[in-house]
Nucleic acid binder design. Structure first.
Lengths: 146, 146
DNA sequence: GTAACTGCAAAGCATTTGCACTCAT
DNA sequence: ATGAGTGCAAATGCTTTGCAGTTAC
């Protein structure tokens, strides 16, 4: 729907902070919490407030430049995402240990889900699929869960 | 279905309140929030505190007698679940409007997920799939989400 | 009798919001 | 100039916890 260069329309002011968040998120290998991103920026010497991190994260999510998932403890994890705007649902394979993640396209479950849903008469279907595991680069123990 | 009265645990005291929560959850057609369960019990004239509802819910989850999922807004929804101990993954089709849910077996995504995961070298794979929609008995608008 | 359970209120958490101020345009 | 964006602190909402009183066993 938006073939625009800079995703969010309307009014973007390109502030120092918005770039900071965008860049920090893009640089993250896996999912990050707003708090973690904030801490990271702060320790890098960058000046920014937690509220702004949250606000910018929301902007990115709205602009479909970031994905959100909820970890088992109920906190939100964000990830920069270049595929979201294709309109195609995609999911992530997240490492429980290091939070590294692989983005995966999902034709198979998509079809199945839609079939099952309509079979039960459900409309306006949407879903979230979160896959956790230990990635190949992490040792076996890996209880470092986010 | 299951021979043991109390699935896990050494000492349970079987109080009036613990039965209340267990029963209320078992009687719920779909996923319920702790808050909703509390309100329901209270309006039924039963005397119980919110803390106790939370505590008993945790006991049930630990005992694998209940499932938890997190709705998009981050609150926990519980559901009595007799299948959790079969080892077989199952998922739920949840109505955004009335919270009624259908438990669905999931051979298809299970196979797909495991294939994709091992393809990426991930071990100890686990996942959650939550499907939301408006069920056939609810009107179109349905913003009443529990 | 005694330890687990309960209720209440206070404490956490992650996240959001009100408001005055700043800065990109 | 002007209003979107920012920072701070206070406010939310859900959930957890400390503690004294209660109750099952």
């Amino acid at each position: 729907m938006w073939e625009v260069r800079w995703p969010v329309r309307g009014s973007h002011r390109g502030t120092r902070q918005s770039e900071l968040v965008r860049k920090a998120l893009a640089d993250s290998a896996g999912f990050v919490s707003a708090q973690a991103l904030f801490a990271e920026l702060r320790s890098s010497g960058d000046n920014i407030s937690l509220s702004t991190v949250y606000r910018q994260l929301q902007v990115l999510v709205t602009a479909a430049e970031a994905d959100v998932i909820h970890d088992p403890n109920g906190q939100s994890l964000y990830r920069f995402c270049g595929l979201a705007h294709t309109g195609r649902k995609h999911h992530h394979l997240v490492c429980r240990s290091c939070a590294r993640s692989a983005e995966i396209d999902s034709g198979v479950p998509e079809e199945w889900i839609e079939a099952v849903a309509s079979e039960h008469g459900y409309r306006e279907v949407d879903w979230t699929l979160e896959i956790f595991g230990i990635c190949p680069r992490c040792p076996d123990d890996g209880r470092a869960s986010a």
